[in-house]
Design a protein around this nucleic acid. Structure first.
Lengths: 207, 207
DNA sequence: GGTTAATATTTCGCACTACGAAATATTAAC
DNA sequence: GTTAATATTTCGTAGTGCGAAATATTAACC
């Protein structure tokens, strides 16, 4: 395929891959610039975002390592830095004393909240597209993300939306909520899909 | 906008931005994994790719810095590492003795060539989409890249200069631009020659 | 034509990233 | 109750990433 060789780049899929590569560079740039403003590093920003948006059962050193695609020792060092800045706390787990749970401090939560608009520049670029294209783009990108997830390049750890028991938009007109949880066998309102859920299970964890 | 806050993520543009963020993480992961295989770092891989695909007039320390979105001192260090590995050579420019031109060594060229399939995993994910969606995806992503380019988050250094339709300096005194695109039959300013162009075609492909 | 300003790059110091290998501690397995 | 698996840390090493300051060269300008 060799999308990065201009001579072989004629296929739509190749040009798309290269465009995604360029977006990656822009996001890296955004990350670093923003990190600097907040007196953080790019890795620290990604870690804070992960801890702010993933289910809390993934809030361990190992969970963070998978979530931001870094090796254990590196992740441990990132946590060191965040702990020094008093944005994160290590607390040994009660149930399994090998694992270390990570908790955002109050300052950490505030910092995370200020980072939520990190992708605004990207979103602005997207919003300049006609809404019909946005719909296709959304579907296509989510399919690509799912593909990369299955291939093991991304680990998704958010509430409901990445849970095997979640059925998105199962009954759109139900007043109790459009989504459905097959574990509780109950409808779910959009609002209720962001809470921490003890029964969360990734599809890959199914036995 | 706050796309990274799940509660505000309902808009298509927000979900698209988050999907792109996830693709970014996958690409970073790919970069590091591949870099390790080749006894390089992620930054070194990006530098080699840049030197292998951009127009040669951008092959200076400063050009590389813009191309991979790093500061001058950092870029200088990356070049140090590549020089140590004998993949790149520094050679002072004849015309302007402040600038340092960068040249891939033979080994550097070979290494760069082996990196061209870096995005294969991404391309595979793309190819699993129907071709109608691919067409929209391509157009939309290139529009986003152009937007990010205009906003200064990406610097593009290819296109035109390697395109069969490009006539460099065809009319040096034309106020609309010194260059010419024979596909559009229109003058081109220097600034306009760096965009991703759907009509790009290498001379060797002419039949 | 000589001072001044702009450009291109490097050096330095600092904090941090990133990894594998090996060490430590704890839990699970047999 | 030994062995194996899991979660994390420590250590050593190479490299990233930046601002501030230093150096060298070219351009600007009165």
């Amino acid at each position: 395929m060799k999308a990065l060789n201009p001579r072989y780049r004629q296929s739509p899929s190749g040009q798309i891959a290269v465009a995604l590569y360029r977006v990656t560079q822009a996001v890296q740039h955004l990350l670093r610039r923003r990190a600097e403003q907040e007196d953080l590093s790019a890795a620290q920003v990604q870690a804070l975002i992960f801890l702010n948006t993933s289910r809390s059962s993934a809030h361990t050193v190992g969970g963070l390592a998978k979530g931001i695609a870094l090796a254990y020792p590196t992740t441990s060092a990132v946590v060191d830095a965040l702990e020094r800045k008093e944005l994160v706390e290590r607390r040994p787990s009660e149930s399994d004393r090998r694992t270390i749970n990570l908790r955002l401090t109050q300052r950490g939560k505030e910092k995370s909240a200020t980072l939520e608009d990190l992708l605004d520049e990207i979103e602005q670029a997207v919003q300049s597209l006609p809404s019909t294209e946005q719909q296709v783009l959304q579907r296509a990108l989510q399919a690509i993300v799912a593909h990369l997830n299955r291939a093991g390049y991304i680990h998704l750890h958010e509430m409901c939306w990445h849970c095997q028991f979640f059925r998105r938009n199962a009954h759109p007109n139900d007043p109790r909520g459009p989504h459905h949880c097959t574990f509780m066998d109950a409808p779910l309102a959009e609002e209720d899909t962001f809470f921490d859920c003890p029964d969360f299970q990734l599809p890959s964890e199914r036995r």
